[in-house]
Design a protein around this nucleic acid. Structure first.
Length: 555
RNA sequence: GCACCCGUAGUUCAGCUGGAUAGAACGUCGGCUUGCGGAGCCGGAGGUCACAGGUUCGAAUCCUGUCGGGUGUACCA
């Protein structure tokens, strides 16, 4: 509706003043009307005349439109437009049907990215939730979304862990793995990583052994060696990691189409970089680097002196592999902030031989998850805030309020608290606040939906009568519902679920004001009101779906 | 040092492609109350939008500088 209006206003300006003006149409405070435009202010600047006078002429031209109840000039020269109640009511009835602006487009989203052999920490939970919601947004716009997950199954961290595993097994003795029970495997690997890392830092001999081991692991992965003792240990423990990931994702209700273990893209990355050396990449000190410093970026190593691909080269391989697999129109990658400048170097280098891929790639970054008043954590020291810690904390807090708490409610609380702020900065996870049933929380919105559905069930079916006039609260509700497609469009453009959170909460507030004063069942206006409640429930349900929040039948 | 991100009520955050009196939530103070699901509604107090300049009819929003915080800065990811 906003686009139509924009054209309508532009043509009015053209007709009256013969100028093409970029009329900005926006949603003003409700007291001013349904839409506002500053086109008169823009025109006044160009024409050098009084903005209010120009606004008056445009307003008169617009007021001939039968869809408008009122068109008036306000303030320095804004034109405020109020729609007919019937128009507003009609548009609110279809607000939940989102336009498929990305129909048939192929989009790859990559997020979560945990490393096998390491523990899932709070940040993985956070990016999983955010990535899932962004994927849902794209899907709701009609795109074919491929959700993928990337992680380091080879690399120094694996060598550190493997070194410690070998210590514990007393050498390359795969039989020792049988003694580790299924539900303790993930923790056992995490412990190995920590002790391996300690040895790496404190013990020069261990460090050398790990360098050797690192190369051995690359080789055994390349050859898919599953039979040698070391190969058995590697593939067995690696599969433990992936099982652990799968279990966790299932628990939080998200899923991926594919894992890209680093080893599967390392070769492609390595060969691509080598093919372009010299040229795009260059040799320096025995390593292959990209000289980003010449372009205001950092110079980064892509292939080490040992001939192994670093994160950067693997990332090159990953982007190419995604294109091969999915022929994507757009690729969205979501990672922590610290990756941001590395990625810039990677993309800058790819720009030199495949600029179209870089153009289609969006890299979104986010901050750290922290508890209120918590100090800094480090995965290397093992004192991380784990993903399960967040779930446990939320569950514990939720049970204090409601002993019959369900996983839906706990997850709804966590997801909403992660999604309600924009991406970028650090996130403070306040368990108590997240599960609160009052205020801007997931459970509040879940309850709002359960309640609306319950009202509808009790009310029965409403006849299809239209509404010529609405009272104050009915109108406010219809107005708020009808804005949903515009909010969705913003969330899609910016890939920001938090716009939907803010909107849904405001919507629920508007509904509660309406419901406080207007009887729905058994009133003379019940047909209209039931339909409004229905439209409200559909929009609320649609929004929560996009956030990845499921709602229980009863609360 | 250089690069990138950030600084808005006591707290956690919206608002930032310039627009009308800077909004919520939590906390705090007061009011509604046998309700169609009150997990609600109404109201009060609480702000030098880090600071200083600049651009503009108009700046929390754009530009420059300063201060403060975070991250990165060659063979980890």
């Amino acid at each position: 509706m906003d686009k139509e209006l924009q054209n309508r206003i532009s043509s009015a300006c053209k007709k009256l003043f013969g100028k093409d003006v970029s009329a900005q149409v926006f949603r003003p405070d409700e007291q001013f009307g349904d839409f506002s435009t500053n086109c008169a202010l823009k025109l006044a600047g160009e024409l050098g005349s009084n903005p209010r006078e120009i606004a008056g002429q445009i307003a008169e031209e617009l007021s001939a439109d039968e869809n408008f109840k009122d068109v008036s000039v306000a303030g320095p020269g804004f034109i405020n437009i109020t729609l007919q109640d019937s128009v507003l009511f009609t548009s609110s009835m279809t607000a939940h049907k989102l336009e498929k602006t990305l129909a048939s487009r192929s989009i790859v989203t990559e997020y979560s990215d945990p490393n096998p052999f390491k523990v899932l920490h709070a940040g993985h939970l956070y990016t999983s939730v955010v990535g899932d919601s962004i994927s849902n947004i794209l899907e709701s716009a009609g795109a074919k979304v491929h959700r993928v997950n990337y992680g380091g199954d080879v690399g120094l961290h694996v060598a550190k862990t493997m070194w410690a595993i070998l210590e514990k097994l007393g050498g390359e003795k795969p039989g020792g793995l049988d003694g580790i029970k299924k539900d303790g495997r993930a923790d056992w690997l995490a412990e190995c990583y920590v002790s391996g890392n300690d040895a790496y830092e404190d013990n020069p001999q261990a460090k050398e052994e790990m360098a050797v081991l690192n190369k051995k692991i690359y080789k055994l992965v390349e050859k898919k060696d599953k039979d040698s003792p070391l190969g058995k240990i590697y593939w067995t423990t690696r599969s433990w990691s992936y099982e652990y990931f799968d279990d966790f994702y299932a628990r939080i209700g998200i899923s991926f189409e594919k894992y890209y273990p680093e080893s599967t893209v390392a070769e492609l990355g390595l060969s691509t970089v080598k093919e372009n050396t010299p040229g795009i990449y260059s040799e320096s000190d025995g390593a292959i680097v990209y000289e980003g410093e010449k372009e205001g970026l950092h110079t980064r190593v892509f292939v080490t002196r040992e001939g192994l691909p670093t994160y950067e080269a693997k990332e090159v391989g990953l982007i190419l592999q995604k294109q091969k697999d999915y022929a994507f129109d757009k690729s969205v990658v979501i990672t922590a902030n610290e990756i941001s400048q590395y990625m810039q170097v990677v993309l800058k280098s790819i720009e030199k031989f495949a600029p179209e891929l870089v153009e289609k790639t969006a890299h979104l970054t986010h901050g750290l998850v922290k508890l209120p008043g918590a100090q800094k954590m480090s995965s290397r020291k093992g004192n991380v805030l784990k993903a399960v810690d967040i779930i446990d904390l939320a569950e514990e807090s939720s049970k204090k309020i409601n002993p019959s708490t369900t996983p839906d409610i706990v997850l709804g609380a966590i997801k909403y608290s992660f999604l309600k702020s924009g991406l970028g900065g650090d996130v403070i996870f306040d368990a108590k606040e997240s599960v609160s049933i009052e205020g801007n929380s997931g459970p509040y919105l879940q309850y709002a939906l359960v309640r609306a559905k319950s009202i509808l069930q009790k009310a029965g079916k409403a006849s299809e009568s239209s509404a010529d006039e609405l009272n104050g609260e009915e109108r406010s509700l219809a107005r708020k519902i009808s804005i949903y497609p515009e909010v969705f469009a913003t969330a899609l453009e910016e890939l920001s679920p938090h716009h939907i959170c803010t909107y849904l909460y405001e919507l629920a507030q508007v509904f509660n004001r309406f419901y406080e004063k207007n009887r729905v069942i058994g009133d003379a206006r019940s047909d209209i009101r039931i339909r409004l409640v229905g439209a409200y429930a559909q929009v609320l349900g649609s929004g929560l779906d996009i956030l990845g929040i499921t709602t229980p039948e009863k609360m």
